[in-house]
Amino acid sequence: MENIQLQVSGLIKRFGTETVLNGIDLSVRKGEVVVVLGPSGCGKSTLLRCMNGLEPKSAGTILLDGEEVTSDSKKIAQLRQKIGMVFQSYDLFPHKNIMDNITLAPVKVQKRSKKEVEQDAERLLKRVGLWEKRKAYPRELSGGQKQRVAIIRALCMNPEVMLFDEVTAALDPEMVREVLDVILELAESGMTMVIVTHEMQFARAIADRIIFLDNGKIVENSPPELFFTNPQTQRAKDFLQTFAYEKRRTAIN
């Protein structure tokens, strides 16, 4: 196919004797938003971590723009500049203020001028409403604010693909929205993204395609409308069922 940006084929990942990913084949087109769903422990996060070489894979290949992603390669640092990743735990650098958190890697890794990066940062910070916080330290920010900064920090590397690993899982419920809005906006701008999330509404709204993982395998690979209204497998049905609540008590009359 044309315009394949990220190509995963035959990916296997074992931890000791346990097989976490068991032959994953997946291709992501340029500008496509793929949401990975699945019960906890199904290997969603591991899949993302393999995609940017944080976990060495046991077998298979992952190609980004035709270049192999291997965790032991010296070129991985080079390659990672093209893949931005945002984690559940934000992981801002606590000893640097917001602006320095954002500019550190572009300046030190990509050797871009500090001025230029700061202009990028300014534009992005203003867009998410955090420009006033540029001199603050991470500890002074709320979880939602920290997560938005973490997204900007990854964006300032000008990545071609963004990976989101349960970025709202650690947030208080009222802060989830502000983070997801940023990601939605990013999707509109045409960024290629792979997203692991537990927010079903969000998944349905943002995804071009839903990947349903179970026991280390892709069980469903379908457009969101189809997946949410008419899942093809029993396992996906069961999974979706866990998010629905039925009224158990009949009204007292």
Partner: peptide, 27 residues
């Protein structure tokens, strides 16, 4: 220093040396 700090530095394309100097050591 938490492992996730090192991973997030890695995901920004930072080398081991740079991660030590800018992320691990100061903390």
């Amino acid at each position: 220093v938490e492992k996730s700090q090192i991973e997030s530095a890695a995901s920004l394309g930072m080398s081991k040396l740079l991660t030590m100097k800018e992320v691990i050591f100061p903390q």
